[in-house]
């Protein structure tokens, strides 16, 4: 399940929905990304997330498909928020269910690493001394690279 939305999400509810009535799942890993109040500058007051409607959803679907081809998974949910968010707000949720923990842990990390470098989202931060677009990070590319592509 992939969603790009302005509304907040409830990670507990999303996880329960995935697990409901399924007894073969042995592990579920859930990752929630939050807005920090510091980044390239201190005192980040808010951020605005822009996306490319259509391409964003298909890029996320492609990432999930790649994860499913690498690991044996019983369920994947990715929710990414857009619009204006405040520090402490959840931005992104990845829930991965599998028969065993290793696949769930690894696939969850893989999806986040690929999402950060491949899914068309852009962050603009609003700090006390002005607004600026967040620059891409070398470390994110290194993280994505370790999955060997």
């Amino acid at each position: 399940m992939i969603r790009v939305q302005e509304a907040p999400f409830d990670s507990g509810a999303e996880q329960q929905a995935m697990l409901a009535g399924r007894k073969s799942i042995g592990a579920v890993v859930s990752f929630t990304g939050l807005v920090r109040d510091f980044n390239e500058r201190p005192e980040v007051q808010a951020l605005t997330l822009e996306h490319y409607p259509g391409m964003t959803e298909s890029a996320l679907a492609d990432i999930v498909e790649q994860a499913e081809s690498r690991w044996s998974l019983d369920g994947v949910s990715v929710i990414h928020r857009i619009g204006r968010l405040a520090p402490g707000d959840p931005i992104v949720l990845v829930v991965v269910a599998s028969a065993h923990r290793r696949a769930a842990f690894e696939a969850c990390e893989f999806i986040m690493d690929y999402l950060k470098t491949r899914a068309p989202f852009w962050k603009k931060e609003h700090a006390s001394d002005g607004d600026y677009w967040v620059a891409e990070r070398e470390s994110d590319y290194r993280d994505a690279h370790r999955w060997g592509t």
Binding site: Y52, M55, P120, F121, W122, E136
Partner: peptide
């Protein structure tokens, strides 16, 4: 909406988007 390069062909009614590296998540 598919990643492209300089040599990617373009035809009528195509949508071509230019954007900076992504920073989501």
């Amino acid at each position: 909406q598919v990643m492209a390069a300089d040599a990617t062909p373009i035809t009528d009614e195509d949508e071509v988007a230019f954007f900076p590296p992504v920073t989501g998540g």
